[in-house]
Write a protein that binds this DNA or RNA. Sequence first.
DNA 1: AAGGCGGGGCT
DNA 2: AGCCCAGCCTT
Length: 348
Amino acid sequence: MNFSSIITNWYSIHKRSLPWRNTKEPYYIWLSEIILQQTQITQGLPYYEAFVNKFPTVFDLANAKESEVLKLWQGLGYYSRARNLHKTATYIANELNGTFPDTYTDLLKLKGIGDYTASAIASICFNKPTAVVDGNVYRILSRYYGIETPINYTEGIKEFKKLATALIDKNNPAEHNQAIMEFGARQCKPKNPDCSVCPFKNSCIALQKNSIDKLPVKLKKTKVSNKYYNFLVFISTDKKTLFEKRTYKGIWQNLYQFPLIETKTPLNIDAFKASAKVKSLLNDISFEFSLYNEKDIVHKLSHQHLYTKFWIIEVDKLPSEGISISELTTFPTNILISNFIDEFKFPI
DNA sequence: AAGGCGGGGCT
DNA sequence: AGCCCAGCCTT
């Protein structure tokens, strides 16, 4: 049996039942692929269900406001996916009459669709022999063939794409692609795979050379920077607060948050009171403030650690136009703000 | 070519 | 604490 047959045989026995495996409708496959980018199935699954429920067709998604899409995406991370999802839905609904492109090349032109996703949709929906190369495929191929080329540089990316393309079953690319990814997720796992039950145990180079835990090779280290976030949680006597949209580039673009003072070093109470933002906002206003959390809440992103304080500022009247506290949960926010709103006892 | 972009789970 | 996850976009 060749590589593809072994993989698809394994898949026919071990595959999980997942909602997007019951359809070849491009809209649903696209939705699932975007949600699952850099996201484990257990984390993405409830979001997929929510999106299918709220936006059953690409037209429903296109007709929504971006803030509605972000609200449903809240907590999933990599929010550019949601913004691009909405942009592409609008394009497909309005310019393509709701019909998805059916080739790798045309799919690749869409916002938010790169090599992996174009290959996935073209193969699963349109039976094109376009091989997917995701984290699972890198791991399986590097181990099985004992390939030590780093997977995060151009040379490795091209080498693995070429190999995956050579291996794909042209008669059944949809099944092949899904099978190899499921095999990577369930059998050829990153840590402690049970190679004793692997169908490739007699031919896997890494297993023979005892190098399973060294492959795939990935060189870059993401360096993490520390930042100090001070959120200003205003509470007025008429039960309003200030909530702002992050319109600038960077993390959490187009999500909402309390007014923020960002510093490179911790902000003590005196520095907080002396800060330009506090002064400008609270000039000529009487207020009382307290600190919600004495110890910083540490919010860890892949490339930043955010040491966060929430400052509670009670005022008679807001320094500028605000929103009703009861409306807070209708705005899309990051998980940090969302958790605070859930846990803090606002006087509603 | 390199770096930014989230949040959760596992070891 | 570090790595990984059905990657993509901008610079």
